[in-house]
């Protein structure tokens, strides 16, 4: 975490307009990440690569994550009038957090043997503001992986030299790795003992009027 904070300070000193945020990882791995604003992503990546103290010259992994809209409940203390006197009570307020798509980059340094440095960048939402600048001009290794993220998640990488679907066929619509993707209905029979598959199958049989 300290190391990451020092990298953050170093980048912010070099690029004053780029604001980075630390995202802590609550898990056991201790791999915390830096959240970059999409507008400054390319400059930050270039700086990370070319800074002689950092030299993160190897972009190992690029991947997308789909975060759905979710509802969070906050506990707030409010003053309420109750039987003539004012008391303070705790109430839960529901707050709708809009979803977004996230692109995660894992950088290593071949020159220094350090890493991973985890960069994250987020889109505005999941529908129409899904552009993120491409890193393919900084790291060639992002080229195919960004195409894959575009194909499976629907993140549009602006400035990518050849943004086409990578795995699904041309003319396919939809982005299958999104959490709300509905798979084609083509494995109807052979109920298996796995609870979820059996439940899915029974729903289908009910729909089709099969026994």
């Amino acid at each position: 975490m300290e190391r990451l904070a020092s990298i953050q300070a170093r980048i912010e000193a070099a690029l004053p307009e780029a604001k980075l945020a630390l995202a802590a990882n609550p898990g056991a791995s201790g791999q915390h990440s830096l959240v970059v604003e999409a507008a400054h992503l390319e400059a930050v990546a270039r700086r990370l690569r070319d800074d002689p103290e950092l030299q993160f010259d190897y972009l190992s992994n690029v991947t997308g994550v789909d975060w759905l809209d979710r509802v969070e409940t906050d506990k707030v203390r409010v003053k309420r009038e109750y039987q003539g006197e004012e008391i303070e009570v705790e109430e839960s307020v529901e707050r709708r957090v809009p979803g977004y798509l996230e692109v995660v980059y894992h950088l290593y340094s071949v020159a220094r043997g350090t890493g991973p440095l985890v960069l994250r960048v987020r889109t505005g939402n999941r529908t129409d503001r899904v552009d993120v600048p491409s890193l393919a001009n900084v790291f060639r290794g992002a080229e195919l992986q960004e195409r894959e993220v575009y194909d499976l998640f629907g993140v549009v990488f602006t400035g990518h030299p050849d943004l086409r679907r990578l795995l699904m066929w041309e003319g396919f619509s939809g982005h299958p790795m999104r959490k709300d993707y509905v798979e084609p209905d083509d494995y109807e029979y052979e109920p298996t003992p796995h609870g979820e598959v059996a439940a899915k199958a029974s729903r289908r049989y009910a729909k089709r009027g099969q026994p």
Binding site: P26, G27, Q31, N61, H106
Partner: peptide, 24 residues
């Protein structure tokens, strides 16, 4: 059921760096 968090683990496979990125 690991607690919430994320990890990237990689090894030197015969073909190259094979890694897995998991978010729990």
């Amino acid at each position: 059921k690991p607690r919430a968090g994320e990890a990237y683990g990689r090894i030197e496979g015969p073909k190259g760096e094979i890694g897995f990125y998991l978010i729990s």
